[in-house]
């Protein structure tokens, strides 16, 4: 079966170890959620999978459908099917969403093949309708002057256009009001597919009311300390994380 497998992963930033022996398997067609207190290493995990150069993997493996991706550049991992919806998406001044996505979609075409403009726009507009985005949005520079909600919707639009095999959504619910959360969640739910695995990273249970995961993991101090069905989220919501961290307190950020 196809899956994204993380095996006993250890990763540092500088000399400091953040991920301390983490293992996880995200099967195609499934949604996993990672919850955990601030500073447990959730965002770091997403960046390590995507290949952010600030982090060094000291041991362990990340296998995508059996292939180790740790030696690959971030763009190669992306083209192979890894997508990260950023917690804080970057601005790209002067580059419109339409042109940015066009470049990203073109980068996935086989050499010598060109993107057909009409088809591209047709697809782009379909996905925008799905996310209740105004068409004029495409002419705006990527994330420049966007509200929190617009940034997150723009991330989901990119995911919809790039059709990744494995998507990691890092704190996608942060900074969203209830309407924006509903729209973004709707977009994610529509993109649920037997051919796609997803990993939701969230601090709060709220997001999981809208996007119901198959499995929930609790991450504390760089490791998964507990996994369970979706009901686990409710338990965490009422009890907090403290009871899990009594033995090993999470470092404050």
């Amino acid at each position: 079966m196809k899956s994204l497998v993380i095996k006993d992963l250890h990763a540092n930033i500088g000399e400091r170890e953040i991920i301390k022996g983490l293992s996880l398997e995200i099967e195609c067609g499934k949604i996993h959620a990672i919850m955990g207190p601030n500073g447990s290493g959730k965002s770091t995990l997403s960046k390590v999978i995507a290949g952010h150069p600030d982090y060094t993997v000291t041991s362990g493996e990340v296998l995508m459908d059996g292939e180790n991706i740790l030696g690959m550049a971030p763009d190669e991992r992306a083209r192979k099917g890894i997508f990260l919806a950023f917690q804080y998406p970057m601005e790209v001044p002067g580059v419109t969403i339409a042109n940015f996505l066009r470049a990203a979609v073109s980068a996935r075409l086989p050499e010598g093949e060109e993107l057909e403009a009409t088809e591209y726009y047709q697809r782009l507009y379909e996905k925008m309708d799905l996310l209740e985005m105004d068409r004029s949005f495409t002419a705006r520079s990527v994330n420049e002057g966007f509200s929190g909600g617009e940034k997150k919707r723009c991330e989901i639009l990119q995911m919809a256009m790039l059709e990744p095999k494995y998507a990691i959504l890092d704190e996608t619910d942060s900074g969203l009001d209830i309407d924006a959360l509903r729209i973004v969640s709707h977009g994610v739910n529509v993109l649920r597919s037997p051919d796609r695995g997803m990993l939701l990273i969230t601090h709060y249970q709220r997001l999981l009311d809208y996007i119901v995961p198959d499995v929930i993991h609790v991450m504390v101090a760089g490791k998964i300390v507990m996994s369970g069905p979706k009901e686990l989220a409710l338990e965490l919501e009422s009890k907090g994380y403290d009871w899990l961290t009594e033995e090993e307190p999470a470092p404050a950020v």
Binding site: A50, G51, H52, P53, A73, P74, D75, A78, R79, F83, L84, F86, P89, M90, E91, V92, P93, G94, V95, N99, F100, A103, A104, A107, R108, S141, Q158, L162
Partner: peptide, 25 residues
């Protein structure tokens, strides 16, 4: 910014070039 663009599948060179083009656009 470059990492963000690379995560979308652009090579480092393509990302750089798109940013520069955006700047003078």
């Amino acid at each position: 910014q470059i990492f963000y663009m690379q995560q979308r599948g652009l090579t480092e060179g393509q990302a750089m070039s798109l940013s520069v083009n955006g700047f003078v656009n």
